[in-house]
Amino acid sequence: MSAPLLKIENLSAAVGGKKVLQGLSLSVNAGEVHAIMGPNGSGKSTLSYVLAGRPGYEITGGKIEFEGRDLTTLAPEERARAGLFLGFQYPVEIPGVNNVYLLKAAVNARRKAQGLQEVDAYEFLQMVRAKTKLMQMDESFLSRGVNEGFSGGEKKRNEILQMLVVEPRLAVLDETDSGLDIDALKVVARGVNSMRAADRGVLLITHYQRLLEHVVPDFVHVLTRGRIAKTGDKSLALELEQRGYDWVLEVA
């Protein structure tokens, strides 16, 4: 059997000297969708930033392997080129850099790392347009500055659009569902579902189970106090919705 897409073993991490992750273990195989749920402050966003390699998030113990490679030795841009994608909880606005430019730069960076030629400009634009349509975004968004003046929901859709365009091996989506109305949530879910494939994995970090009605996970993990306290199938998400997180803490 080939190595899991993502294998985290006994991971500890600190932010600003404060221990946030404390012995987290998790394994994601290709073809699987995992949901990570947990109360505020449990370490959900920290996990996503540690995976993406954000400066200031210090790994103090444990291992992270991505397709058998040690992820922690890679710079953030190398992780992206290896096929890891982070959908940000709060995507930044970058006025002056247009969306299409960023999409193309991202795709070409990955292709270059794979020893492939740059994308054909025309074909690329056709592909981006089709995916923009899938995300129910107006084409005018493409020529605007990255997230510039976008509403909260538009920013989240734009994250999913980027994911669809770069076609990562593993997508880590950090609370992509927060702040979305039900229609936008369905659009985002459709985007994520269209990415599901036998050779890809998704890690959905979420606070609520409503996204999981539309993107049905293979596994649901409860993250509390910096470690996975409980793992189950999609029914665990419903149970959490009804009973809250406290009972998991009591059991753990």
């Binding site: 841009e77 002056g96 850099v97 960023l102």
Partner: peptide
Amino acid sequence: FYLLSRGLDRAQAQALLQWAF
């Protein structure tokens, strides 16, 4: 960091942000 997380190399990301500015 946002640009790096999309795979752009550091020099390109820096030039891009200066450009935007």
